[in-house]
Design a protein around this nucleic acid. Structure first.
Lengths: 223, 223
DNA sequence: AAACCCGTGGTACCCCGGTACCACGGCCCG
DNA sequence: CGGGCCGTGGTACCGGGGTACCACGGGTTT
């Protein structure tokens, strides 16, 4: 019997997962969490075999929650679920230590299969994402996968600093450089410097594409 | 017994709705559709009391599907479901003839209550959206609601022309004016003219905010 | 026929955004 | 201690974006 913790900010979505998992034999839902912090807490308490983790959540997101769960060294394995088929996401998720990465538009059987696979120690990646992941990792990592060693950080892929992340979020909200300067209490020059670095790091040619990226990464939530 | 047709492009989400509706007494799921066109077809065939309609779908979206369903004059009533709490959305949905508008993060009980209300002829609007809707409609429409008569189209709220809509989508993809001109085979001057009109119509001060709007409206899909 | 909307195009102007390059203080780590 | 990295800031330059205003042909409505 595989025990599962469901993490998603939408009650209705959780219900769907719960119904699915409880209808199939071999899986049992031992808990639900509505955001990242709660997930981390419940994993420590319930020690589930598999954590079904949504990426986009208010407060602590799925990636960060995954990072912390994996860092505790427990035996729980994290299966990331997201609506979007985006490379950056997959990379971040796997770097955070997730054992799998599936899209929410997966068929119920695929999801069940994924949970079984992850529970038995395998890794699962959504079909569409696999090939591009391989393209990226194949030539710079040992064959046993991304979990061993730090992915070589070339400056282009290097993660954003806290400040830069903050700037990216601000861009994603549609703020002008002037507004960002105002709200973060900076000079516009500084903002421009940061924006420039952010754009070059994430590979966006202008702030418009950075906005798109912010949405794709879930940094900005519609509405 | 209220019959319901579920329309959502994500099988897992449909499953959640189905489980919920079949567990509660008084509601029965008579069918599922994965996109707008299928929804229109199935409504004509199954004549459900209520159509549970997602907004963001590939191909024909929920708004357009709603428009067509309502246009047929059947007795099916449409309850729109969306992830996002956005005015424009609500307006478009209600203009299209929907009987209700709920957010996907609603609690299961709220959803059931919404379906019951819509089935019995009432209108339902998500709490957060209600007030702003009233603010907009209160002073320009008769008290019995948006369904009677055309909402006075002042130029600011007037719907985009087909071309302008196309331009907005292009902006949402992150294209520069030059790229739009190239791909749509126009002069850059013309593109600028269109862009300007789009921005003023949708109330965006620059293309960055138009991109955000495009995401919020579901014109652009992440990934 | 006149009025209107839509799509197309142009000119002119200004400002914001992005880049290149540089500078300095604080901090941490080898 | 010296070398990075990070955050802060500046100057200078230029290209694209946005606005204002105008123009014309084709279609529909009045």
């Amino acid at each position: 019997m595989t025990t599962v913790l469901i993490v998603d900010d939408q009650p209705l979505q959780r219900l769907g997962f719960r119904m699915l998992l409880e209808s199939g034999p071999g899986t049992a839902v031992v808990g639900e969490a509505g955001h990242g912090a709660e997930a981390v807490r419940l994993v420590a308490e319930l020690r589930p075999d598999v954590v079904l983790m949504d990426v986009r959540m208010p407060g602590m997101d799925g990636i960060e929650a995954t990072r912390r769960i994996v860092a505790t060294g427990g035996r729980s394995r994290v299966l990331i679920l997201t609506t979007f088929d985006l490379d950056e996401y997959a990379h971040a998720a796997l770097r955070a230590g997730a054992s799998g990465f599936l899209l929410k538009d997966a068929l119920p059987e695929e999801l069940l299969a994924g949970i079984r696979a992850v529970a038995s120690g395998d890794a699962v990646i959504a079909p569409g994402v696999t090939r591009r992941l391989l393209d990226v990792y194949a030539h710079r990592l040992p064959p046993n996968g991304p979990r061993t060693g730090t992915p070589a950080d070339d400056p282009r892929t290097r993660t954003l600093t806290e400040r830069e992340h903050q700037i990216l979020v601000a861009i994603g909200r549609g703020w002008t450089n002037g507004e960002i300067a105002e709200r973060l209490v900076l000079s516009e020059s500084t903002v421009k410097t940061h924006v420039g670095r952010v754009l070059s790091k994430v590979g966006a040619r202008d702030r418009v594409q950075a906005v798109i990226l912010a949405y794709d990464l879930g940094l900005t939530r519609p509405g």
